[in-house]
Design a binder for these strands. Sequence first.
DNA 1: GTCTATATAAAGATAGAC
DNA 2: GTCTATCTTTATATAGAC
Lengths: 234, 234
Amino acid sequence: MADDTDTDELGIPVLAKPLSASGRKRASITEAAIAEFVQRGYTGASVDSIATRAGVSKPTIYSHFGNKQRLFLAVIGGYLRDSYTDLGPRADGIADAPDLRTALVDFLGAWVEVVLREDIMTLRRLVIGEVERFPQLGEVWARINIVHDDALVRAFTALDQRGTLQVPDPRAAVRQLIAMTIGAAQLIRTFRPAYRFDDGELDALVTSGVDVFLSAYAGFVVPAAVVSRRRRAG
Amino acid sequence: MADDTDTDELGIPVLAKPLSASGRKRASITEAAIAEFVQRGYTGASVDSIATRAGVSKPTIYSHFGNKQRLFLAVIGGYLRDSYTDLGPRADGIADAPDLRTALVDFLGAWVEVVLREDIMTLRRLVIGEVERFPQLGEVWARINIVHDDALVRAFTALDQRGTLQVPDPRAAVRQLIAMTIGAAQLIRTFRPAYRFDDGELDALVTSGVDVFLSAYAGFVVPAAVVSRRRRAG
DNA sequence: GTCTATATAAAGATAGAC
DNA sequence: GTCTATCTTTATATAGAC
């Protein structure tokens, strides 16, 4: 058993830093398990195969992690946490950027490139597919999203106080902005892993999302979004 | 083998209408297989268990569907197609509704209630989790979404021609509206199956999404979204 | 077409030696 | 702590009788 390992508040075992020979084996098991689980899913993955990949015997895995479920939670939960903790660009400069529209487009454009990475998308599909069996992983994901959103929430709160934006509910506004840009792109690739965005397609998607957002919350219509509209209306 | 069954353009076997005794068995296998796959996933489901649920023997299943993969594709693909073909409210009245905002809120509110149903969400998670193994299912899903979006696309195109809305790219606009409302709600429940929306929470989410949409594409700010904003700006 | 019975392989997990 | 060897169960798939 491995009941002596600590777990965080979501039940994800927190692994100690590997140092000893035993620690190195544990690390190699972790690495092998991530690869196997990501590739074949929870049920499809076999402990045998993980042992072979890691270059250890099966009982070694069981002595470290107890059983397959604990192994999955520990390695995938930890992988999630570590991957996303410092993932994506920082939003710190946005509140003070000279051109808000450009700053948002750049920020969201960089972010969407990260979340559309194959490895990230595959991990995402794995977690979604297993979330009814392992609800803790969904909670980890939700928490990570909140943390990531916070940067934009702070920026919009500041901009609201300065009067640059009028955002009564910053968190809701952030959710809307992200849904229109990142969420829309992610949704396509969630169901169509092979889909490739054309040159400029992602850009247009992000830009028009930002424009809709600004036209609602900045109280003005941004040029590019509404050329045809100005013409028509005028 | 079951190589004599027809398949549609996505490779999903099209099942003939069940009539004979053999047809009834086939139908009961289909029903049992859907339940088993939805409950345990593709790899976790066992043909043994499906046979028991259906009250038939294992060879009967293999004689009808060939192997487990074909069985999965046939029943889940068919279930997807049938479930979603006439799912959700009709958007036909929207272009001619006296109050566009109310019509959109009602329409999207009804729609989001359907897509958040447990059985629909579970099916969605299953498809996402298996989409790398069965890309056809993702294509089916994408096609269904396009069909569903079309109703709104037509409505916005008509409203654009009449000048009620200014929507240069109706399909992109529909995607944005749906992302902010349905997509945002769906995303939460995708990772948190146990999450329950408060009374009014879904309503607020949908309404504020519609308001952002209208403020961008109708060229005016709708009352409820911006009370605090009018005050500030005035 | 459908069954019983079975072939064959692989899974999760552990006993016991070192 | 880690290994070899093994237990037990369950999986997909099929042969052959009716």
